[in-house]
Structure formats: structure tokens, C-alpha cells
Design a protein around this nucleic acid. Structure first.
Lengths: 305, 305
DNA sequence: TCTTTAAGATGAGATTTTCTCATGATAGGT
DNA sequence: ACCTATCATGAGAAAATCTCATCTTAAAGA
């Protein structure tokens, strides 16, 4: 019935004072404006402006439409600017989920640095312990998933961040502390301290114990890595943790770490995003930042070992 | 680039939850919406919504456009309503100009009644003593002119309101008071009291004295009809006024009135409007109201005579 | 797991809208 | 009274938008 084109035309006519001049500004012919205006007037059933004066004079109805233009056009322009900003990846949303508890340790500094560099990006972090992150990523609830168990999918892209070794944290005075590596059997009489998530999500089971059909003597759960360390240090149990997650404690000689099995258990953390967003600048940037941050952690480990 | 159609489509999709349902509501095919959406996404360079979920999920960019729709669409709808109201003549503007001083007398009650009946119409009154009202009417500054000197014009419509007699108001004890009528010569030794406007706008000259080539001995000017009456009653001069303008004073025997010339000087008041607005309801209504109001004045005269 | 079903995507062609070109009409300035 | 600049108009071209028919795919049911 009445479109933005009409509002823009009326606005231009007001600024220009005549159809001819307005047509030039809008890069169309005077004829186009004349037709357009006449069609609009016919459909609305009102005269919008008196073309016989110089500059042209708007009727009451014309003034009303100009007021409408003054309200609507700036809103549209701002909306379009925002969309462009989103499209070019200058602003946007990064809803992030992590599947591993320990990741907070290297993630937090990375997030801080990212926030500084991309203040326009709405950042949100959730722990994906209680739900499956892949479907959420696919449907757009999430924009990135940090996981060591990437599930391949056509619409997803999994980018490796870094590899790490899952090691067993043991008390310094434990009999296990002296071993070059630990076999599964050795855990049969130990208390294992884990994060409180399903067993299927714990690498110590899926990548080590289940293979050998071994079950620890007891399982204790806690959410907090520092508390885990305290329990281990006190000889109340052992915990399987990423090497970078405990490097700090190793340096302070609070605990010892021993590889799991002769080859050790190695895992790789991946960042998963939707393939369609592969080119979004701030996503690429974030992954770079995350890699750098994890590198610092690894350097710490080298220094410690 | 981005039109109202798109905003309406997105809004409908949000309400409906799917393209198919939204297409039904908008009375187009699902295909149309699919094409429309894809074109928009291509042009903007962003995905707007994820069609694979039920209901569909909007991306950040999509949400931004929906927010825009929520701002813009209500404004457009209200604007359209206002225009319709203007188009059907339920609201509008009546900028009125009168060319005769005395007209205020019958116009004021008419305006009061009109204001009650058409509160939506913006009413404005100006006295057209210092400018030419016809051009202002043509160019849209005015919407109606009350004049006893209608100038015919293709784009204008002059509707007669009522006829009146221009009479000479004289003191009761004046020698002129006894006359059946007054000839031009009789004014040669009189003081004539007029409104302070150009001589060409005074009927007493153009329609009576100029004919006979007579000039009054003296001319006095005043803006206010009651003051004119007081001066006349005090024998300080005579004044040419419409019969209805002085009926009240005649009834109270403050002054006398005498016809100008044997046939009297008769004039007809007209309401002039733009021909294109001939059908505007509140203009027709106003003219009706004005006629009725003037009729009351004439009844007063009959009662007085 | 295999159907079934409903939704969305796509290409071609029809329809509608909007524009340009060429020309006519008109008002204001000289 | 004649220019000159402005707006109007009709016909046809160009562009945008829609429909129809058909395909692909995801999710629900057997």
C-alpha cells in the first residue's frame, strides 16, 4: 500500500523543493516521481502536495506522511547499519559452551583478552555438562563448543586448538608417585576423584579404565579443581586431569603427576562452529586467541617438567 | 534494499513459527516467502533464521530485524490510519479567512458549534485584511475564504451563504434618520466611520459613493464595531454596515439605519473553497452551519423591523 | 530401521510493479 | 505574449515479485 520508497521520495521532494531536483537526488527520472506520487495519491485518496507552488507545498496529509518518514527512515537506516555490522562480523554474538571442567583455567584469560578486543560482540559462556552441545550449536543456541569429543557433522567445522595429556594426579608420598607410568590395574584399589558428570563424559573411564575393565575402589566427586588438588595432596584419592590444568600445582610441589599407561592418554581440544560461520572474523580471532592462551599453559608445563 | 514487505514477512514468520503457516496468513505461497527470505539474506549477507527447527529460530541479525519491525510497523499502521481519516474527511484542517470585519459577529457562534461537532478538525481563523486570500486559498495556506467579492477561478468553488443589505447607521436624532433612503450627495458633509482597511475594500465606496463621485467630508477609522456604534449614537459620524451587524443595536434603539440609495446596496457573502475539496464532509458541514447561523441573525432583523 | 509426512528449497515462467523515454500541458518570469 | 522550467501522461521496457511444479530433507511413526 505505502512503501519506504514513497517516504523517501516525499522526504527528497521536501528537501529539494521540486520533483525535478528530487528526481536527480534519487537518481531516477522526474517521470518516475510523478507516476509514483500520483499512484500513491490515487490509492490513498488524498492529495499530498501542491506542485504548482515553488517550492512545492505539502497538504495536511502530505505533512503527516513526512512526519512518518521522519520517524521511520532513521530507524530503518540504523537497523540497516546494525545488520551490516553483524554481516561484516564487526559485531555479533558468541555463545560459548565448554564440555570440560578444567577448561575454565585457560579459557578465562582468553575470554578477558577477547572482550577487550571485540567489545561489540555479545559474549556468553555456559558449561555443557547437562546437555548435548552439538544440537544446540546446530540450532543456533550456541555459536561455539569447546570439546575433546568432536562429533563430525556436515554443517559443523571442528578446529583443533591443542593436544594435551591426561595424567593422574597423585600425592607426593603416594606409592604411585614414583612410577614411570600407571597401568589400569593400579587404580583398582584407589579412590578416584572426578567432576560430577556422567561417567561417559569422563576420559579416565572411556579412554583408559573401560578398556581394561577396571573399576576404581571408590569414586568421589567435586566440582572444583583446587579442591580436587587439595584432596589428592592430602592422600584422599587420585584424579585424572589435563597436564596444563595442574602445572601450577606441580611447580609448587603440592602433588605429583604420572602418565596413564605406557603411551599416556592424549586428547585434543577442538573448537566447533557452524560451517556457515567459518569466515566470521571474531570467531576466527577467538580461536587464535584461545590457541595462544593454551600455548602459555603448555610453556608453563615445559618449565615445570 | 530492505522493504516493509520484508519486515511484515519476518513478523508473520515469528508469529506463525513456520514459512508455510506464515505464507497462509499473508495470502501468498510458501515459495514466495522462501524466495523473498533468500533474496534478503543474500543481499544483506547474513542468515536471518534457521528453518530447520520448529518453530524456526531467528539469528541475531534476524532478531535485530524483528526489533526493527516492532518499531516501524506500528508507526506505519498508525500513519496509514491517520491518512485514511484525513482522506475520508473525518479529520482535517479548516484554515478560514474572512474579508469583512463585521463577520465575526455571526461567525463566532458558527465556529463554536462546528468545533463541538468536528473536534478532529484543526480550526484556524485569520482576518484577510492585509493580504489577498484567493492566492493563499489556491496554494493551500487557507482552506476557506468568506468574502463578498468572489473572484471566479477554475480551481475554486464559491458557494453563496446569504444576502444582506448594506445600510447606513445614523444617530437617532440625526436629520438623516427620518429619510426613507439616503443619496450619495447627503454624505458629502458627513463624517464617515470605517474599518481601517484600504478604500478598495470598503463597499460604501466601491458600491455607492465612487459611482456618484462623492467624497465624505471626513473619514474616521476604528477596528471595533461596538465603538463604531457608540460614535454613531453620539452623533460623531455615520457608518455603513451590514444590516445583520447592527440589528442588536437597532432593537435597543441606540441608533437608526437607513438604506443607501433607492434600491439599497445588497451584497451576498460567499464561502470559497478549492474545487477538489468540494466533497470534503466537514467543509460542506461548515457551510451549512454558517448558513443556519446567519439565518438566526436575519430572523433577528425581521423581528426588529 | 524403514516409511511417512510435512516443511523448506529451487527453477522456470507468469504477473505485477516500477521505471524510462518521448512528448504534451502549464505557470511564472521577462 | 513569449520563453523556460516544471509537472503530467501514455506506451513500452525493465525489474521485482509471485505462482506452479517438483525436489530435498528432517523428524515422527510403525
Amino acid at each position: 500500500m505505502i512503501g519506504l520508497r514513497h517516504l523517501e521520495t516525499l522526504d527528497a521532494i521536501r528537501e529539494a523543493g521540486s520533483l525535478v531536483e528530487a528526481a536527480e537526488r534519487l537518481h531516477v527520472t522526474q517521470s518516475a516521481l510523478s507516476h509514483q506520487l500520483r499512484d500513491l495519491e490515487d490509492r490513498l485518496g488524498v492529495s499530498l502536495l501542491n506542485r504548482r507552488t515553488r517550492p512545492v507545498r505539502f497538504t495536511v496529509a502530505g505533512e503527516r506522511l513526512l512526519a512518518l518518514a521522519d520517524q521511520v527512515l532513521p530507524l530503518m537506516r540504523q537497523g540497516l547499519r546494525d545488520i551490516r555490522s553483524l554481516a561484516t562480523g564487526q559485531s555479533g554474538r558468541l555463545h560459548l559452551a565448554i564440555e570440560c571442567h578444567a577448561c575454565f583455567q585457560w579459557l578465562m584469560p582468553a575470554l578477558d583478552r577477547f572482550r577487550e578486543q571485540w567489545p561489540q560482540v555479545e559474549l556468553d559462556l555456559s558449561a555443557a555438562f547437562a546437555f548435548a552441545p552439538q544440537p544446540a550449536l546446530l540450532r543456533g543456541d550456541l555459536d561455539m563448543v569447546i570439546s575433546s569429543d568432536p562429533v563430525e557433522h556436515d554443517a559443523l567445522l571442528w578446529l583443533p586448538l591443542f593436544s594435551y595429556e591426561l595424567v593422574l594426579a597423585v600425592a607426593r608420598d603416594s606409592v604411585l608417585a614414583a612410577r614411570d607410568f600407571i597401568d589400569a590395574q593400579s587404580l583398582a584399589d584407589q579412590t578416584l576423584i572426578t567432576y560430577p558428570v556422567e561417567r561417559e563424559r569422563l576420559d579416565i573411564f572411556t579412554a583408559f579404565l573401560d578398556h581394561a575393565g577396571v573399576e576404581p575402589a571408590q569414586i568421589r566427586r567435586t566440582e572444583l579443581t583446587p579442591m580436587m588438588i587439595q584432596l589428592v595432596a592430602a592422600g584422599r584419592g587420585v584424579a585424572a586431569l589435563p597436564n596444563w590444568a595442574i602445572s601450577e600445582y606441580l611447580q609448587h610441589d603440592l602433588i605429583c603427576s604420572v602418565p596413564l599407561g605406557k603411551q599416556g592418554v592424549w586428547r585434543t581440544l577442538h573448537a566447533g562452529i557452524r560451517r556457515e560461520e567459518a569466515e566470521v572474523p571474531f570467531l576466527q580471532e577467538f580461536i587464535q586467541t584461545a590457541k595462544q592462551e593454551s600455548l602459555r599453559g603448555l610453556q608453563g608445563i615445559r618449565a615445570a617438567s
